[in-house]
Write a protein that binds this DNA or RNA. Structure first.
Length: 506
RNA sequence: CGCGGGGUGGAGCAGCCCGGUAGCUCGCGAGGCUCAUAACCUCGAGGUCGGUGGUUCAAAUCCACCCCCCGCAACCA
């Protein structure tokens, strides 16, 4: 396994609404990756958090009748408690209102300004006083603001601009020479297409007359910085604060496709200007499409993660998200499909296998493990699980979680066939065949143990429960290289079965 | 106009990057088993892999063109 550490980030979620399906998906992926690599001995550090400044938040707060800080305190807390109740792992939760982050942003802005990459200029555009924002001509409907139905005024405003274009060539070279830098490849091609056009300058300030909810520029107190300089730097500021800057070059950013441009264009040029190394990889995923006709009324257009947890269990929800979407592509979210997978793959596949094995183990041997005595079908079973591990690990390294799970389920299918083919329940009727029955069940207990280990990053609760049912200590979960046959000492006793995934009747 | 993604048995999808028996889940038909969460196993029906042309001994997979569908186009993962 790689010696290089892993610094994994989710986006720093914009704190203008409570956590929904999109946030949850990215965070599930992050959690699964952290668990996966930690189990394999890789040093890792996970970051998530909330992006709390800006227009939209000031407006949302005003609408809610509270101060911006009170508003973001509430939303940020909602994210944190949601992730906690969902059982997600991460090492740091950053808020862009953290004092250390604010200080870090000001420091970087001052440095880039001193270096000459930030200049003051006049910006001319179509401004709607009702919306308090500029419009592009193509956004207007018949020349008027779509909300207020009035023609915007052309006004000039002075602002600070980051000379992003100065780094365009270096950025292009970086994208061209490193094909793994932005994955999947479709998104890299999209970035290359963007870089065929001049990227120009990036407006990075807002006058306080228009927006006060932001970080004041260190070189002009009439302005606050706007959005990206603030938000993107939150990937770095927690490391600086904690003395972990050595992790920075190992940064892998998980994002959805809507924020590709800021991450693939603004961010690397900002890093170049700041004299920091580039992040290691940008991992871009698609959207969950919602077909409202297929959603139950109680769910509606917004899928709340804790509702899903309450209804189906967190592991089933995680399984569905990871199994259904091919990372990078869009997928459709449907509760019906979730239930189908829960029943077919979790309950009938994994759950039922555990149930039948533990039941026989209980019935024939009162839970006591019997000695192994490998025969050809047993060897084939071992090969199936060894193959599953190899494929699963290769697919996770490729972010192909759907294929990783599929690979493990092929082994589980093999195990279910193995039960029918070796028919321990038939052999058990013949006292002379009892040792063979015991050996078969031992093989199956090993299969379940390996399953618990391999599935842990994706279904952490299930892994723990299955390990406990096998009568093993939780630490065993991390011992991935324990040889087949080495998990159960002589006289070991397994627990009576219990349903890991009750079927959802439809 | 541009960019991206799709078009694979009844439904939903994977496979395509690294050409060589078309796979998964659901649904349907028949049978088996009885350890198990009416679960499990076997067999079967059902596909000219959007179209045309090309490369190749060989193409769902590579290339070209075309036809449909869906997103994006300065701040929703």
């Amino acid at each position: 396994m790689p010696a290089e550490p892993l610094y994994l980030t989710t986006p720093i979620y914009y704190a203008n609404a409570e956590p929904h399906l999109g946030h949850t998906y990215t965070t599930v992926v992050g959690d699964a990756l952290l668990r996966f690599w930690q189990a394999r001995g890789r040093r890792s550090f996970g970051l998530t958090g909330t992006d709390e400044h800006g227009d939209k938040i000031a407006q949302a707060a005003a609408k809610a009748g509270v101060e911006p800080k009170a508003y973001v305190d509430r939303i940020s807390a909602a994210f944190r408690t949601t992730w906690q109740e969902a059982g997600f792992h991460y090492d740091h939760f950053v808020r862009t209102t953290d004092a250390s982050h604010v200080a870090f942003v000001r420091k970087i802005l001052a440095e880039i300004h001193a270096k000459g990459d930030i200049h003051f200029d006049s910006y001319r555009g179509l401004y709607c006083y009702g919306c308090e924002r500029f419009y592009q001509e193509r956004e207007l409907v018949n020349g008027v603001c779509p909300d207020h139905r009035v023609a915007p005024s052309e006004i000039a405003e002075e602002n600070y601009f980051f000379r992003m274009g100065a780094y365009q060539e270096r950025l292009l070279a970086a994208v061209e020479t490193n094909p793994e830098w932005i994955v999947p490849d479709g998104y890299r091609r999209e970035v290359l297409a963007l870089l065929r056009e001049p990227i120009g300058d990036l407006c990075i300030s807002r006058p306080k007359s228009r927006l006060t909810w932001g970080i004041e520029l260190p070189f002009d107190d009439r302005y606050v910085t706007y959005v990206w300089f603030d938000a993107l730097l939150s990937y770095v500021s927690p490391l600086a604060e904690r003395g972990l800057m050595d992790l920075w070059p190992a940064a892998h950013h998980l994002i959805a496709k809507d924020i590709l441009k800021p991450h693939a264009i603004y961010w690397p040029t900002m890093l170049m200007a700041a004299g920091l190394p580039l992040y290691r990889q940008l991992c871009v995923h698609g959207y969950w499409q919602m077909d409202e006709a297929k959603m139950s009324k109680s769910v509606g257009a917004v899928v709340r993660p804790l509702d899903m947890k309450a209804r189906y269990g967190m592991d089933a929800f995680r399984y569905y998200l990871l199994r259904e979407m091919a990372y990078g592509q869009d997928a459709e979210f449907s509760e019906g499909a979730l239930v189908t997978r829960l029943n077919a793959e979790l309950a009938n596949g994994l759950g039922n296998l555990a149930s039948r094995v533990l039941a026989m183990q209980q019935r024939y041997f009162e839970g006591i493990l019997q000695p192994l005595a490998p025969e050809p079908p047993d060897e084939a079973l071992r090969v199936a699980f060894a193959t599953a591990r190899r494929q699963l690990e290769a697919h996770v390294a490729d972010l192909a979680f759907h294929r990783a799970l599929e690979a493990l389920w092929r082994a589980l299918d093999h195990a279910n066939k193995y039960v029918v083919e070796t028919a321990p329940f038939t052999l058990a009727k013949d006292p002379a065949r009892r040792p063979r029955v015991g050996a078969i069940l031992h093989e199956l207990c090993e299969a379940l143990r390996v399953t618990a280990q391999l599935v842990e990053p994706f279904l952490p609760e299930t892994a723990v429960r299955l390990t406990a049912l096998l009568g093993l200590p939780a630490e065993r979960l991390a011992e991935l290289d324990l040889p087949w046959g080495g998990a159960f000492p002589s006289g070991h006793r397994t627990a009576p079965p219990e349903a890991l995934f009750p079927r959802i009747e439809t």
